[in-house]
């Protein structure tokens, strides 16, 4: 039997004070714990990336429609293979248009290659400082980014662009939040 003897005397005819700790139940418990934790372990770490759909509600007849100045929104067009087009507009008024070369930076993780667009993220951050409507720390609202994507584009490209948009952070009451909320263009 496995045990640990604590030797502390017991000579000259007196009753031994040696005590033996029985380690077998402890080892059994460890083995059961290890097996349980290995069986329930989650090895693949999943996360989520948010998008939001601006679905208009049904018109309410009891409320007078308030005229609100349309806010500036960023549209990221990814319809060409070689460039992104960034358009800042409020309603039908276009404030600025610029192009960013579609230069992907591949990242290899094991057998997987993930495309990222750091140039796009940098350009969006630069333009947001100039055109962004919600930059104040007390402002709860965030700017809207609309992704206009070609219907044949793969989903991985959409996620890469959303990821580039979410690279830009701002603070709200001291807490770090995304500077943009992303939605899709219906067209």
């Amino acid at each position: 039997m496995g045990g640990v003897s604590v030797d502390s005397g017991g000579k000259s005819g007196r009753r031994s004070v040696d005590s033996e700790l029985n380690l077998i139940p402890m080892i059994d418990l460890f083995v059961v714990c290890v097996l349980f934790l290995i069986m329930t372990a989650v090895w693949s770490q999943m996360a989520r990336i948010e998008a939001n759909a601006q679905v208009p509600g049904p018109p309410r007849t009891d409320e007078e429609v308030e005229k609100v100045e349309p806010e500036k929104m960023l549209t990221v067009e990814m319809k060409q293979d070689d460039r992104f087009v960034l358009i800042w507009k409020s309603g039908a008024t276009v404030h600025a248009t610029s192009e960013v070369p579609r230069k992907g930076q591949p990242i290899t993780l094991g057998t997987e290659t993930v495309m990222r667009y750091p140039d796009l993220a940098t350009e969006i951050a630069k333009q947001w400082k100039e055109y962004g409507s919600h930059q104040n720390d007390n402002d709860r609202k965030v700017d809207q980014a609309i992704i206009s994507v070609d219907n044949r584009a793969p989903f991985s490209d959409i996620i890469a662009v959303i990821d580039a948009i979410y690279t830009l952070k701002r603070t709200y009451k001291g807490a770090e939040i995304n500077a943009f909320q992303v939605t899709f263009s219906a067209r």
Partner: peptide, 30 residues
């Protein structure tokens, strides 16, 4: 990751019209 944007947008909009306007895409963590 290979699904086309057309299918993604269709599912996205259907979910939004069914009362789920806040869509999250499941991704791996980089």
């Amino acid at each position: 990751h290979r699904v086309s944007a057309l299918v993604v947008k269709s599912v996205f909009q259907t979910a939004a019209f069914a009362g789920y306007p806040n869509v999250s895409f499941m991704v791996g963590q980089l």
